[in-house]
Amino acid sequence: MAQNVLLTGGTGFIGKYLTDVLIEAGYSVSILSRSDKENTPRVTYYKWDIKKNYIDKNAVLNADYIIHLAGEGIVEKRWTKKRKKAIIESRVRPIEMIYSVLENNNKKLEAFVSASGIGIYGAVTSHKIFTEDTPPANDFLGITCQKWESAADKIGSLNIRTVKIRTGIVLGKNEGFLKKLTPTFKSGFGAILGSGKQYLPWIHIEDLCQIYLKSIEDAKLEGAYNACTTDNTTNARFSKTFAKLFDYTIWVPKLPPFFLKILLGEMSIAVLTGTRASSEKIQKTGFEFQFTDLEKTLINCIK
Rank of each mutant, 00 (worst) to 15 (best):
M1I: 13
N4T: 15
V5I: 13
V5S: 03
L6P: 02
L7I: 05
G10D: 10
L22T: 03
I23L: 15
A25E: 14
R34G: 12
R42Y: 14
V43F: 07
K47R: 15
W48I: 09
I66N: 02
G71V: 11
I87E: 08
E89A: 13
S90A: 12
E96T: 12
I98T: 11
E103K: 15
N105A: 10
V124A: 13
I129A: 03
F130D: 01
I143S: 09
T144Y: 03
K147N: 14
T162P: 00
K180T: 12
K180Q: 15
G188I: 10
I192Q: 00
Q198H: 05
Y199M: 06
I205V: 15
Q210N: 15
S215M: 03
N226H: 11
N226L: 04
A227S: 14
C228A: 15
T230I: 07
T233H: 00
S239I: 03
A243C: 11
A243F: 01
L245I: 14
F246W: 10
D247M: 10
P253E: 07
K254N: 15
L255Q: 04
P257C: 08
L264H: 05
E266W: 03
S268E: 04
I269Y: 05
S278I: 04
S279I: 03
S279Y: 04
S279Q: 07
Q283L: 08
T292V: 13
D293R: 00
E295G: 00
L298S: 00
I299S: 14
I302L: 13
